[in-house]
């Protein structure tokens, strides 16, 4: 699992590559926690290059979203498709975390 962090104006974009499962969930949480900018600001987690998310992966995304949103920061997920989108849909993630099909939509919303 790889994580690339970039900035689009004030928005932090964390692009995940690989699988988020029981073997990588802890690493995902640690890397995402490091990517949280000092002083906060909106963050978009881009899952376009994620091929698989398990139950442990879902929990890791929730843990990060909770930690990040605690200080009133905006956190959203984008780019999910195929089996990843299916797992997120089954779990009803869109009711708890804002989700966007494309990164552009997510960034626009985050800049809000």
């Amino acid at each position: 699992m790889e994580l690339r962090v970039s900035k689009h104006n004030a928005v932090t974009i964390a692009e995940v590559d690989g699988r988020i499962d029981g073997m990588t969930a802890k690493e995902f949480e640690e890397k995402m926690a490091e990517a949280i900018p000092e002083g906060g600001g909106p963050m978009v987690c881009d899952l376009s290059h994620v091929s698989y998310v398990s139950s442990a992966g879902l929990r890791a995304i929730l843990v990060i979203a909770k930690r990040f949103s605690k200080d009133g920061n905006f956190f959203s997920v984008c780019g999910h498709s195929g089996p990843v989108a299916e797992v997120l849909r089954i779990s009803g993630f869109e009711k708890i975390i804002p989700m966007h099909e494309s990164r552009a939509d997510a960034v626009e919303k985050a800049e809000g």
């Binding site: 929730l62 089954i90 779990s91 993630f93 009711k95």
Partner: peptide, 11 residues
């Protein structure tokens, strides 16, 4: 219901 769905084993 929303919260319960979030955990695969739970649902």
């Amino acid at each position: 219901e929303e919260i319960g769905r979030l955990e695969l084993i739970g649902q």
